[in-house]
């Protein structure tokens, strides 16, 4: 497979799982382009990583994943400034609080824009290049929430499901050309996005990043993080609708 020496792009790298992935990549000696919306935090995080490593491997690129048109030019800019890219991690995601009787198009549009279309914009940009170089690796972080549509966050479920299906199609298109596409479905992870939710048995963002990078190394297709969620979601997926619609999970 690819040599693992090129630049990595991490979209959504200023906090949580994205930050932990960026840290671990930099720690492994890779050049990492860190992308996120909040510029001050992003620059501080890149600085703190470089600071600890004692050399400059993390580079901050402020970027709003909802600005779909800017993905392609930014990808080209990163290539020009940091050398060939052979790894993309799409970790950006938003999950606004939604009340059970709330149907707010603004919130819904933002989730589709960032979670699904953002992933597509970056996935497309990476796919065409990786296809040309017949190597590379794309990791997309979706969610266990994509397995069923539930009462709590309809559009979060839908946007993650769209992303998940897109990644599957990408995998099927690219795998035969030596490009690996890995879908990560995290369960409960302790990150800024999940602050305030009561998550029993949540793992740390760093532990999630470790498992994600291991899945990448093993060239897995779909990975639940942590692994027990494969079983949990198998059960949940197979609850018949006439039961599921009466449940509050």
């Amino acid at each position: 497979m690819h040599s693992r020496s090129g630049t990595c792009i991490v979209v959504g790298a200023s906090s949580g799982i994205g930050l932990a992935i960026a840290r671990r990549l930099a720690l492994a000696g890779r050049k990492v382009a860190m992308l996120a919306r909040r510029e001050a935090e992003l620059r501080a995080m890149a600085a703190s990583i470089n600071d600890s490593l004692g050399r400059e491997l993390a580079f901050a690129y402020p970027h709003d994943a909802a600005q779909l048109e800017t993905a392609e030019p930014l990808f080209a800019r990163i290539e020009a400034e940091r050398g060939a890219v052979d790894e993309l991690h799409f970790v950006a995601g938003v999950m606004p609080e939604v009340a059970l009787d709330e149907f707010d198009l603004g919130k819904d549009r933002l989730q589709v824009q960032v979670n699904m279309l953002g992933c597509i914009a970056w996935g497309n940009a990476a796919a065409q290049r990786f296809l040309r170089q017949k190597a590379g690796c794309i990791v997309g972080v979706t969610s266990v929430a994509q397995d069923r549509g539930r009462i709590g966050r309809p559009v979060y479920n839908a946007s993650k499901a769209g992303m998940d299906t897109y990644l599957e199609a990408l995998r099927n298109r690219l795998w035969r050309h030596g490009v690996r596409v890995t879908t990560i479905r995290p369960g409960f992870v302790d990150t800024p996005m999940t602050v305030g939710l009561k998550l029993k048995g949540a793992i740390s963002a760093d532990a999630a990043a470790e498992r994600i990078l291991r899945a990448r190394d093993r060239q897995r297709a779909i990975v639940y993080v942590p692994g027990k969620w494969r079983l949990i979601m198998f059960v949940i997926r197979n609850i018949p609708s006439f039961v599921f619609r009466r449940l509050s999970i």
């Binding site: 840290r23 490593l53 050399r55 740390s204 963002a205 760093d206």
Partner: peptide, 16 residues
Amino acid sequence: KSGEDPEGVRFFDPIL
């Protein structure tokens, strides 16, 4: 000091 403990970068995760 800077660069003395590259592994230490992981431990900026509050849970760790």
